[in-house]
Amino acid sequence: MNNSMIIGQYVPGHSLIHRLDPRTKILIIFFFVITVFFANSVWSYAILTAFAIGTALATRVPLSFVAKGLKPVWFLIIFTFLLHLFVSRQGDILFTVLGFPFYEESLIQGATLSLRFFLLILFTSLLTLTTSPIEITDAIESLLHPLKRIKFPVHELALMMSISLRFIPTLMQEAEKISKAQASRGVDFRTGSIKDRMSAIIPLLIPLFVSAFKRAEELAMAMEARGYQGGEGRTKIRELVFYKKDYSAFLFFLLVIAATIGTRM
């Protein structure tokens, strides 16, 4: 059987970006998103774009993968641009094509909005491309740790996420198995009206739910037998450590922010 299942868009690798602490990546992305909204000059945009593209190249993930991640949003980016171009009419008429006027201000606004959009999507997708889902989970648990004081169930949330990740491939295999069994009993998942196809899903969904519940029950029992009593007093083998490269990354990013702010108009 084919065991090479990829969860999400993670592309394993050993680049500097891959090896950064996942918390470093999340924090930098968070502040990058804010910084993008501060940019307002050609230079500030140029710096941020260069930084984003430079980081993308540094991941050594094939650009085709990066592009694939952006595919669903290309439409939105282009649509935003065209909407501004044709709908809003601000500033001087720059030129006219076939009697249709293009306004300077609209063109600039459309371009900057699409660029912002592009930068945000590109940069956040670098996180999921270079960080395994379980590392992201660890980082979230660690970053949300302070919320424990207000009784936010951080540990439970992280455990739920990691168990879900663990069982995604198992349940996918199961779904495949059941759909084959039902196809052998004459269910057609591929043709027919929408209503037919909806009802074809039921013989797949019910067994999947039944099995997921059974698994959950057995897993809970196994966890209890192995001494699981909640997060209290528990130690962890997965550990996140900030290394020198993380501090360097923060420092470099601070320079990028400073440069962006400095070149604002």
């Binding site: 009993r185 004459g186 013989p203 067994p207």
Partner: peptide
Amino acid sequence: TGIVFQYPEHQLFEETVEKDIAFGPKNF
């Protein structure tokens, strides 16, 4: 061609035994 898969009980889904057994013939 009838296939009895491994652990075939995992494919049951109907409310009654009768309906589940009838599922295949109905589809055909």
